[in-house]
Amino acid sequence: MLIIHTALLCEARPLIDRYRLKKDFSFTKFDVFTKDDITLIVSGIGRLKTTVAVTYLLAKQSDLSQAKILNVGIAGATSRQFDFGQTFLVNQIIDTSTGRCYYPDVLINHDLPENTLATFDKIVEDQSVAGDHQGLVDMEAAGFAAAALTFLGPHQITLAKIVSDHLDIDHLSADGVTEIVAGELPRITRLIELIQAQKLPESPNLPQPEQAVIDKITTGLKLTVAQQAQLRNTLFDCHLRSGEIPPEWEQYLKPAPDSKSERNRRFVRLLDYFRGQ
């Protein structure tokens, strides 16, 4: 699953067209577009809206082990050595209001130049706002990183920023922004391919027949994802301590629980049983 975040609809437009994404009306708080494996969310400008949107989307997913998230957007550049319309992969995000830094793990073999980006709470119109920061500036990346890293590992997040101005942002129109992103679409598309091709580790499986025990208990008690993970760890420990999975676990599945609270009670007793062995 790939989630793409943009702040503005005009930034998203070329991606929506390229991947033929359709608006998903089941999302009511933000504009969300989907097709197959790709979901795109538009947050609105600023750190807070970004944090809320990314959190909103990630919190709705039941399994994030294979999820990847990409922020695409325009950014200002403090130096003219960074060309207008050039795309950078961000390797460090500095939150200028807290001083905190975020680091996506750059593990794909990409061919984009990399840069550091600082997020400000107001539009960076000249170097006096950017202070001594050298690199890229925006108003969202720190919010994106803070929210994404609450749910995902640093290897699951990527930020691609396209230089839209050299701290002289007032001349930018929505159409202009779309044009900038569209101009870099081949590079962004290539990046998306690389991200999608990156293999993430599968969630751990026990060797058979332990896995079969997990599967049966999961179905029998209709366990949540978190409960499955807990069960897996408990069984591993149990196996380590006693060399086998004790056989009487099936009695905890019968009769099938008729409510979530009964399921949870039964699950706790089952874990106690395994731990007691």
Partner: peptide, 26 residues
């Protein structure tokens, strides 16, 4: 190599939820 200046190595080295095996590849 791409050079990234950081304030304190722990901020980078001790990040939560890193994937040790994936990192081994790069």
């Amino acid at each position: 190599a791409q050079r990234i200046n950081i304030r304190n190595y722990r901020h980078f080295f001790n990040r939560p939820n890193q994937d040790y095996n994936l990192q081994k590849g790069g």
